[in-house]
């Protein structure tokens, strides 16, 4: 079990606790106590929640992409905090140089869920920089790619992508009706992704032509685009959840990176 202190900023307080309380409960957490205040920036909701540690990432993602949330911070409290903080801490690695040698084999982790858990601390650290420099964000993404363990690189890029996509949606595309998946891809996904990369779109398939995150023979950064599209389109086609499948990547010798979007 883990106890989190979550602080959320919203533009208005009406219904905020009820809506976020539902998100907390839906992720297997229970609300211990809460405080709701108002200042010139908006409504601040502070919640102490307790729940399974493996659901922490899911809860933070839900809150981070919630349409009522302008910003949020989450920190651990209690003795579980130490364990999770140690888990989340990663060792910086050197920039990989192109090498003919096969990629290193990653040892299976002692904790099964650890392999898919992102490095939340590093992602959280880099998110404000992504927002500040958007859409010129590749230097930060490459930095993130190189600073996290191989085991958590893809999930960290995916989390960064989801948070960035959800933020771009709230900022630029939230006004209007909810769309069907194909319309959302055409009217939201494609123009938003074109700010980041040269792409081609055919139905539910998106091809990223020259991704700087996916260098041939080195490592794949495609997970960022997958997360980005999931965050971007997820709020637009609710209540359905959007999934992105990675079909091919330049890093494995394909001519371009291909993604398939579904819900």
């Amino acid at each position: 079990m883990v106890e989190l202190e979550v602080q959320v900023l919203s533009d208005r307080r009406e219904g905020l606790l009820a809506e976020l309380g539902r998100a907390v409960v839906a992720n297997g957490f229970s609300l211990i106590r809460q405080r709701l205040t108002q200042d010139s920036h908006g409504a601040w909701l502070t919640m102490i929640v307790r729940g399974p540690s493996e659901q922490r990432f899911a809860l933070e993602e839900t809150l981070g992409t919630h349409n009522r949330v302008l910003s949020f911070e989450a920190s651990l409290s209690g003795e579980d905090a130490v364990a999770t903080a140690v888990f989340a801490k990663s060792t910086p690695v050197a920039v990989h140089a192109p090498s003919p040698e096969p990629p290193p084999i990653i040892e299976p982790s002692a904790t099964p869920s650890a392999a898919v858990m992102p490095d939340i601390e590093r992602v959280e650290h880099i998110l404000p920089k992504l927002a500040q420099d958007y859409p010129s964000i590749y230097p930060w993404l490459v930095s993130l790619e190189n600073s996290v363990d191989d085991a958590v690189r893809e999930s960290s890029l995916m989390l960064a992508g989801r948070r960035t996509g959800a933020w771009v949606y709230k900022r630029d595309y939230a006004l209007g009706a909810k769309l069907g998946l194909s319309d959302a891809i055409k009217r939201i996904g494609v123009p938003a992704l074109r700010q980041l990369a040269d792409i081609e779109q055919q139905g539910v398939h998106v091809h990223i032509l020259n991704s700087p995150l996916c260098t041939p023979g080195v490592q794949s950064g495609c997970k960022f685009y997958g997360g980005y599209l999931e965050g971007l389109l997820g709020a637009s086609v609710t209540p359905k959840k959007v999934f992105v499948r990675h079909l091919s990547c330049r890093s494995t010798g394909a001519p371009h990176c291909s993604l398939e979007i579904s819900h």
Partner: peptide, 8 residues
């Protein structure tokens, strides 16, 4: 103002 207040 709203747009700039949305944090990532």
């Amino acid at each position: 103002r709203y747009r700039s207040s949305i944090s990532i």
